[in-house]
Simulated scan of single mutants.
Amino acid sequence: MIYFDYSATTPMSSYALETYNRVATDFFANSRSLHNHGLESDDILSLSRKTIADALHVNSNEIYFTGSGSEATFLSLTGLAFSHQQKGKTIITTEGEHHSVLQAMNYLKNFGFTILFVPVNEFGQVTIEQLASTITQDTILVSIAHANSEIGTVQDLQALGSFLADNDILFHSDCVQTFGKLPIPIDVLTSISITAHKCYGPKGVGAAYLNKQVPWSSFLHGTTHESGFRAGTVNVPGIAAFAAAIEEYLPQAPSDMKRLLAFRNKVVDEFKGNRHIYFEGHPTERLPFHISLRISGIEGQLAMLEFNRKGFAISTGSACRVGESAPPRTLISLGRKHHEAHELIRITFGRYTTEDEVIKFIKAFKQILLEFKGFDGSE
């Protein structure tokens, strides 16, 4: 089976796995314990926090470890909203955000917050004009993902963040798909969410960045772990493996993104002239390893199962949406009809993808088109 679902999760690198095993074996103590073993675990935690902070060019005391990117998102958004509600109770986001953002928004509605959805252009991007027209006098917070996991479009966070800063509005971004792969303009962001398993680290580990100049509220009052940000004994081995994965991959990422972009272009060039195939998302301002497309008349789930039968693991969108009958919200927000949105499939490459695998995928794609549509993709 050839794995082309790197936006859902990535395999742990050998270095990250070795780090996890060593820390779990030799530094297993609770990092809050005051004996020598606990102090050693706390040192590992501090070093790991510095590694993640350095990768983002922020201070170590601005990084808070969590159990996932989704948890980091929920705690960041609720913590900022409750802390600043005296200034206003309107929050802006997009219809195409990860479900963890939308879950947080739905939760905040119960406490009197108003949630507004800013429109996006044909590629799923938020423009300054669209954002300016959505902002109200009591808007306190905006949450827009750096990159959309379903269509791959990358937002211009620098421009959006500068505009929001000029209007004294907090800015959170889900950077799960971009951390360790693309530069993140942290200087214009109040908060971001990241996770280990999208960048060759373990599952069950995430982190939030929160600007130390901006107040936030603890979700569970009285919590002492992670400076009150999150309750529960800290997963030191997982966090160490997260740091190891980033430390290893970060220097490789620029060249790897160029390599994966070439693979993406190879696939797109093979099929872009076909009137039955529609590529979604921005053609250039996007995740370089990500392909989002629709085959007219073929449901995404059927296409995914056929690729699986031919030995390729792809997806129909966000793995967090599996089991839902509703079409991808991102495509609906772009104006796609329900049956069109259900046609979405996503192919994502990663550090272990080879050119030979991409060539095999193109051949399998042509076979599927011939079997189901009576053409091989060259029309």
Rank of each mutant, 00 (worst) to 15 (best):
D5F: 01
T9V: 12
P11F: 06
S13R: 07
S14D: 14
Y15E: 15
E18K: 00
R22P: 00
A24G: 00
T25A: 06
F27R: 07
F28Q: 13
F28Y: 12
A29I: 10
L34A: 13
H35G: 15
L39C: 08
D54G: 06
H57W: 06
S60N: 11
S60M: 11
I63G: 06
S76W: 05
T78C: 08
G79H: 09
F82P: 04
Q86E: 15
E95H: 04
H98E: 11
H98S: 12
H99D: 10
V101S: 09
L102C: 00
N106Q: 14
N106Y: 05
I115Q: 05
I115Y: 04
N121T: 04
E122V: 14
G124N: 02
Q130A: 14
L131C: 07
I135P: 08
T139Q: 11
L141E: 07
I144H: 06
A145V: 12
S149D: 12
E150C: 13
D166L: 13
D168A: 10
L170C: 06
V176P: 02
K181P: 08
A196N: 08
G201P: 08
G201Y: 04
V205W: 04
A208N: 05
Y209K: 00
N211V: 05
V214K: 05
W216P: 01
W216Y: 02
F219V: 15
G222H: 05
A231P: 09
G232W: 02
P237R: 00
I239D: 03
A241V: 12
A244S: 15
A245T: 11
Q252V: 15
A253C: 08
S255A: 13
D256G: 00
R264K: 12
V267I: 15
R275M: 07
F279G: 12
G281H: 03
P283V: 14
I295Y: 01
G297I: 14
I298E: 09
I298F: 03
Q301L: 12
M304Q: 11
L305T: 12
L305S: 12
F307G: 04
R309Y: 00
A319V: 13
A319Y: 04
E324M: 15
S325T: 10
P327M: 10
A341I: 10
E343P: 01
L344R: 06
D356C: 00
I359T: 14
I362P: 01
A364Q: 02
K366Y: 00
I368M: 07
L370S: 07
F375S: 09
E379P: 02
E379W: 03
